[in-house]
Computed example of a mutant assay.
Amino acid sequence: MSPEPSGADEAARKAELAANLARVEERIESACVAAGRKREDVTLIVVTKTYPASDVRLLAGLGVRNVAENRDQEAAPKAAACADAPLTWHFVGQLQTNKARSVAGYADRVHSVDRARLVTALSGAAVRAEREIGCLIQVAFDAESGSVGERGGVAPDGVTDLAEAVTAAQGLRLDGVMTVAPLTGPLAGQPEAAFERLREISTSLRAAHPAATMVSAGMSADLEEAVRAGATHVRVGSAVLGQRPRLR
């Protein structure tokens, strides 16, 4: 993570974040107008990975209520440092089963549920923590070409079975589906087509699970395509926080 700013820098950083948030808000608003959707139907999740807890606190002060992380070793201490802020924490990265207990301590939603073993681990951790965790099934369109890689996800034809596993698990709640625009396969370079397919999967899922209404899709580069395709939540990092420093 980048170092915590000095007190002298805090006002400047807050102004920078406010300006960036305003630009992202304009993009979401314009995308909603173009798609004939209401602005309140799309929730902004700010992805704060690699940035310090001080930025998270500034964002909370600017009205952000949803933040996301993708690495537990960074997220856990950051969530603890911001425990008094009115935030909903989303975990969006590929999750190892041995990290489930830690993530269950702070994450309100996990967007990256992609296998039965993870469902089992999260369920046990949620029960121990006496919490209910919202789960999104991560759909990997790359998987159709046999290439999922580090990003994880389940192939589209595995969504139904995994959704049933989440629904049957104690301490978990099925909230919807998530995807990342694929890098390989027939939909590579076509984020809107991928997001349209995610909407179709969501519609099918809701026939059996009406409460699973979340469609998490779109990031800084493709949020407009996601909004047009029906995303209910967009995950925006660099457009709000700036270009990410390289991880050492």
Rank of each mutant, 00 (worst) to 15 (best):
H209N: 03
V227C: 13
L183C: 02
L198E: 14
A208E: 07
E225T: 06
E225V: 03
M214Y: 12
A221P: 00
G189L: 00
T213D: 07
T203V: 14
S216P: 13
R199A: 15
E225I: 02
E225D: 12
L223G: 06
L205K: 04
A193Y: 04
E196C: 08
G218C: 11
E225L: 05
G185C: 05
M214N: 15
G185N: 05
A208W: 08
V227M: 11
A217R: 11
A193G: 00
R228M: 08
A207R: 15
M219K: 07
M214I: 14
A207T: 10
A226F: 08
V227Q: 14
R206E: 12
P210G: 03
A217S: 14
G189F: 03
L223S: 08
S220M: 02
P186A: 09
R199H: 15
P210I: 02
L198T: 12
E225K: 13
A212E: 02
S202D: 07
G189H: 02
T203E: 15
A226H: 08
S220W: 02
P182H: 01
A211L: 03
A211P: 00
L183D: 06
T203P: 00
Q190A: 05
E200V: 09
G218A: 13
V227D: 13
V215G: 10
E200H: 14
L187H: 07
D222I: 01
M219Y: 03
A207H: 12
S216F: 14
P182T: 00
M219N: 08
V227A: 10
S202P: 01
T213N: 06
S204W: 12
A217P: 11
A208V: 04
A188L: 04
A212Y: 01
V215T: 15
P186H: 06
A207K: 14
A221H: 01
V215S: 09
G185I: 05
A194E: 07
P186M: 01
P182K: 02
A226K: 11
A188R: 01
L198N: 12
L187N: 06
A212L: 04
P191A: 01
F195K: 13
R199D: 15
G218N: 13
D222C: 05
L223F: 03
E200L: 14
R197H: 11
R206P: 06
G185P: 05
S216I: 13
L223C: 07
T213I: 10
A208Q: 09
E192T: 07
L187Q: 08
E196Y: 01
T213H: 09
L223K: 06
R199N: 15
R228W: 10
T184C: 03
G185Y: 07
A217E: 11
L198D: 14
A193D: 07
I201A: 13
Q190C: 01
R197F: 07
F195M: 13
R206T: 15
V215D: 11
G185W: 09
E196H: 10
A208R: 14
A194D: 06
E200G: 15
H209F: 12
R197D: 09
A207Q: 15
L223M: 10
H209E: 05
R199G: 11
